[in-house]
Design a protein around this nucleic acid. Structure first.
Lengths: 225, 225
DNA sequence: GTCTATATCATGATAGAC
DNA sequence: GTCTATCATGATATAGAC
C-alpha cells in the first residue's frame, strides 16, 4: 500500500531481457555470462536469479517474449487470407507471404531489439541444448501445423513427402536469410540499406520461394556427358 | 633414429580434431571444454596446447581440414563442366549440382565425421566470433568467386543485384538443410534414412533451387483483397 | 612427445544485510 | 527488491618431471 512509484517492477526484467537477447546473439548461450549481461543491463548480478530463477529460465523467457506474438501474427495472417476467400483455394504465394511477413518485419526493428532476436533465433536451429530445441519446437508447433495444412490444401496434387521437404527448404531459406543478413560477405556488396528493407526482402524472398515450392516434380531430363 | 613405431605422430592430432569436431557441433565453441574433448579423444589435457597452441588455433584447424578439400572439389566440379562444354553456356541447374554435391556427399560420411562437420559448419554462419567468421569467409572466397562468375555467365539477363540475392538464398537453403537435418521436427515425420541419402537430397534440392534461381523477375501480379 | 600437477581466473548460484 | 560478499566449480593454460 505504499505510494512509491510502480515503475521498477517490470523495468528490471525488461532490461535484463533486452541485454540477454543481444548478448546471447553475439556470444551464444554459454559464451554470454550473467556478469556480462547484468553489466550491460545496468542491474545487479543477483537480479537475474531473483527475477528468472536461473540462466536457463532466462533463456526461455527471451524466446517466449518474441516467439509467441510472432506466431500469433502468422496465424492471424493466415486466418485473414482464409476469411477473405472463403471456400476458395489459396495461392501458394499468398501463404508464403503471410508466413514470412512477421519475421521480416522484425528485422526492421533495430532499436526495439527485434533484429537481435531474429539473428538469435537463426542460431537456435543448430546450436542449442536439446531442452532449448524442444522449447522452440513447442513454440513453433501450432503455427507450423496450420501452415502445413494450408499448403496441403493449396497443393493437393503434390506428394506429401515432397511437400514436407519443400516447406523445410523454405523454412531454411527464411531462417538463414533473417539470421545471417549481417554476417555473410557475399551480401556485403549490396547496398547496406537493402539488407534491412523488409518490403524489398519480401519481394525477393517471395519470388524465390514461390518458384521453389512450385518446382516441376520430375527434375528436367538433363543430357549427361 | 629410434626404431619405435611412427604411428603416434599424427594420430593424436587426428583424434583431437575428430573429437573437437563432434563436441563443437554438439555444444558450441564455448560450451565444449578442452577437458571434454581430450577425454573423448582419449588423450591428455595438455596435448591440445602442445599440438595446436591454443583452443582458438584448434578451432581453425578443425575448419581448414574439411573446408579446403570441399572447396577444391567444388571448383574441380565446375572446371569439369566447363571443359566438357567449351564455349557453351552452362545450364544453371548443372552449376547448382556441382556446388551442392560436395557438401551433400559429406552428410553420408557419418563414420568419418563428415556429417558432424557439416552441422558444425551450419552453425558457423550465425554464431561465431568475428575471427572465425573471417576465417570461414576467407576459406570460402575462391569457390564463391568462381561460382558467382559462372552464374553470371549462365544468366546474363538477370540484374546483378537480384542474382547476388538469389545466390545468397540458395546458399542459405543448402546451409540450413545440411546443418539442421537432425534437429528440426518438421522433417522428423519423414523416413529417417531419407535424411542422409545424398542422392535423394540432391534431386530435391536441385529442383527447388533451380526453380528459385530462375524465378520470374517481376513477381506475379496478385489481385489483392 | 606425453604426462601430472597446478596457477590463475571466470562462472552460476546463493546467503543474508538492508 | 536490491545489494555485497562469497562459495564451489570448472575453465584455459603452463611448468616441469619423465
Amino acid at each position: 500500500m505504499s505510494l512509491r512509484a510502480v515503475k521498477p517492477q517490470h523495468e528490471t526484467r525488461t532490461r535484463i531481457l533486452d541485454a540477454a537477447e543481444e548478448l546471447f546473439m553475439q556470444h551464444g548461450f554459454e559464451g554470454a555470462s550473467m556478469r556480462m549481461l547484468t553489466a550491460k543491463a545496468g542491474v545487479n548480478l543477483a537480479a537475474v536469479n531473483y527475477h528468472f530463477g536461473s540462466k536457463h529460465a532466462l533463456i526461455e523467457a527471451v524466446f517466449r517474449r518474441r516467439l509467441d506474438p510472432m506466431n500469433v501474427a502468422r496465424i492471424a495472417a493466415l486466418d485473414r487470407l482464409e476469411v477473405d476467400a472463403p471456400g476458395r483455394v489459396l495461392a501458394p504465394e499468398s501463404i508464403i507471404r503471410a508466413f514470412i511477413g512477421p519475421g521480416l518485419r522484425m528485422i526492421e526493428d533495430a532499436k526495439g531489439g527485434g533484429r537481435n532476436f531474429i539473428r538469435l533465433l537463426g542460431r537456435t536451429y543448430t546450436e542449442p541444448a536439446k531442452s532449448i530445441r524442444a522449447l522452440i519446437g513447442h513454440l513453433y508447433a501450432p503455427a507450423m501445423e496450420r501452415y502445413k495444412a494450408a499448403f496441403e490444401r493449396a497443393l493437393p496434387q503434390m506428394p506429401r513427402e515432397e511437400l514436407v521437404w519443400r516447406i523445410y527448404f523454405m523454412f531454411g531459406t527464411l531462417a538463414y536469410t533473417l539470421a545471417a543478413t549481417d554476417t555473410v560477405q557475399l551480401i556485403a556488396g549490396c547496398k547496406p540499406e537493402d539488407r534491412y528493407d523488409a518490403r524489398l526482402l519480401e519481394e525477393r524472398l517471395a519470388a524465390f520461394l514461390t518458384a521453389g515450392l512450385n518446382a516441376p516434380l520430375k527434375s528436367t531430363i538433363r543430357k549427361a556427358a
